[in-house]
């Protein structure tokens, strides 16, 4: 029977079989899974989409659990896997599916989506002030337009681009002095030089009422 003539249920059965063979390290035929994914994502068929979740969500959970930074998240793997699956399906909807010529590249992208969700979570918790809050929701709706205005103001206060590099390193990237000297040794050759330069910049920034207001202090 041709792939096009197969029902979603038939494809699903074949794909489950093929996935089990893959997990058993046996030769397997990817075409059924690829067709099931195509119907789910490119054609947006709901029943195919449900079967894609049923087959691949457990794999996504496994990838979340084996991510090198998963333990830092202190969240269950299901969380990252489920959102990663959604991002995967949303990203490959419609024409974008055509970028993929086979199952291995699609699976690689699913793995990337799970990894991205973990990285995003870790970004968010590193933004939270642990003294003030441990709740990720506090920074869920962080308004980047405010951040942009703050950065504009800093740029006005610090016309020297080297000064702005230092502020960017410390406050946007949260780099340590040793990391800064290794990246920008031409400007600051030691942690001490970083510290001295930073003290001067902090004083300039603290004195500005507009910046203080933007920071809601």
């Amino acid at each position: 029977m041709s792939l096009a003539g197969m029902t979603v249920n038939e494809l699903c059965d074949k794909c489950k079989e093929s996935t089990q063979q893959f997990l058993n390290r046996l030769p397997h035929d990817d075409q059924y899974c690829f067709e099931l994914l195509r119907r789910a994502l490119a054609e947006q068929q709901q029943d195919a989409l449900y079967n894609v979740y049923e087959i691949y969500l457990p794999l996504a959970i496994y990838w979340a659990e084996t991510h090198p930074r998963f333990l830092q998240t202190r969240y269950p793997a299901d969380e990252f896997a489920t959102i990663g699956m959604s991002n995967f399906c949303l990203a490959l909807g419609g024409e974008k599916f055509q970028h993929f010529d086979g199952l291995p590249s699609i699976m690689k992208f699913l793995k990337a989506c799970v990894s991205s969700e973990i990285a995003l979570h870790l970004r968010k918790i590193s933004r939270i002030d642990p003294i003030l809050s441990e709740d990720i929701a506090d920074f869920q709706n962080q308004d980047d337009s405010i951040s942009e205005r703050i950065w504009q103001r800093i740029s006005e206060l610090l016309p020297d681009s080297v000064d702005r590099i230092l502020v960017d390193c410390v406050f946007r990237q949260d780099l340590k002095p040793a990391e800064i000297t290794s990246l920008y040794g031409q400007y600051w050759s030691s942690a001490r030089e970083v510290s001295v330069a930073l003290q001067r910049l902090r004083r300039t920034l603290r004195r500005d009422p507009m910046l203080t207001e933007l920071l809601r202090l």
Binding site: S147, E148, W151, R172, R216
Partner: peptide
């Protein structure tokens, strides 16, 4: 702290 929270990876 306010600078760090507002600027962290913002762009």
């Amino acid at each position: 702290q306010a600078l760090k929270v507002n600027l962290h990876r913002w762009n």
